[in-house]
């Protein structure tokens, strides 16, 4: 086992999970209040780009993270208001947002930095990694958690926080109520739109963090469409975890593991075109297995009902 799972592999697996985990928490929160958010891909991409801009301009990774959160929250206003006050279809809005993020970042990359494809610069300060003494000597788990960014540590802490908020606090109870029966929540004086708007904006903040980790967490580079489907994997993690933060985190860990196995196979000589698809294949298989034991009824099954 430890021949296969090297310290480096575990570390990169944990690192790979972080953005997906944050995006999945964002998706789980939105799902709890009944907004189907599948714009995490775009929210993260905006965050990743803004983080690079902020860090480039200020030479500070912290400022980069702040700018990433602000930009992603601002971008999330589209879904926050579009799906609530304006009563638009969340699926269509999210498709539009993902494309807008892709186009906008590519455009600004050319317009601001005059490059296409990827952008990196010595002026960009990356996130520093927290070293914990003795950690690397614990096999597997310790290898994974040694030398990670504060965002990675924060992401796992947030899993606990989100679970506590959702299941132990009045706000969480109301959020779940808003998601299950908005009309009922409304009659009990809970402002459904406000809960949904705030939640979507919080999801933007989480995805902003995820994006910052993506661009500043390892190699300090922005590449067009660098989210590369992570937002979609997060959407699936929310489905697999049935919206429960702990189960969603477990699903994310599964993908991270698949990713690491792919990397490892690549190290053993398999072409990366094949190993890159590992997380998607695992995802599809997991979805098929988790959904098969449901009762069937031709009427109850509505299209696009996710």
């Amino acid at each position: 086992m430890s021949d296969f799972l090297t310290p480096f592999l575990m570390q990169s697996a944990v690192q790979a999970i972080t953005p997906i985990l944050l995006a999945a928490l964002a998706g789980a929160l939105c799902g709890a209040v009944g907004v189907f958010n599948m714009a995490m891909e775009g929210q993260m991409l905006i965050g990743a780009f803004a983080a690079i801009c902020g860090s480039y301009a200020s030479h500070s990774a912290g400022v980069g993270v702040g700018v990433a959160i602000a930009a992603s929250v601002a971008f999330s206003l589209i879904l926050a208001y579009g799906a609530t006050v304006f009563r638009g279809d969340a699926v269509v809005i999210c498709i539009g947002m993902n494309l807008l993020a892709s186009g906008l970042t590519a455009y600004l990359l050319r317009a601001l930095f005059n490059v296409s494809g990827t952008f990196s610069d010595p002026a960009i300060a990356g996130l520093s990694r927290i070293r914990i003494p003795l950690m690397p000597s614990i096999p597997i788990l310790g290898w994974g958690l040694a030398r990670q960014t504060a965002i990675t540590w924060g992401a796992w802490a947030l899993v606990i926080v989100v679970a506590l908020v959702l299941f132990k606090t009045p706000v969480g109870l109301r959020m779940r109520g808003v998601g299950e029966r908005p009309d009922a929540a409304e009659t009990l004086g809970v402002d459904v739109n406000r809960y949904r708007i705030v939640t979507v904006l919080v999801s933007g903040a989480l995805c902003g963090l995820a994006g910052a980790q993506l661009s500043l967490g390892a190699v300090n580079v922005f590449a067009e469409d660098m989210t590369a489907g992570r937002g979609w994997i997060a959407v699936v993690a929310v489905m697999l975890g049935r919206g429960h933060p702990l189960y969603c985190a477990a699903a994310c860990a599964l993908f991270g593991f698949a990713d690491a196995v792919g990397l490892r196979l690549q190290g053993l000589g398999l072409p990366n075109q094949l190993t890159d698809i590992a997380p998607y294949v695992v995802t599809l298989a997991a979805l098929a297995i988790s959904h098969r034991a449901r009762n069937s009824n031709a009427l109850g099954k509505a299209d696009r009902d996710v």
Partner: peptide, 12 residues
């Protein structure tokens, strides 16, 4: 008010 269609959260 007790509505005709109950306004209850089934999962709670």
């Amino acid at each position: 008010m007790v509505h005709q269609a109950f306004k209850l959260f089934d999962s709670l």
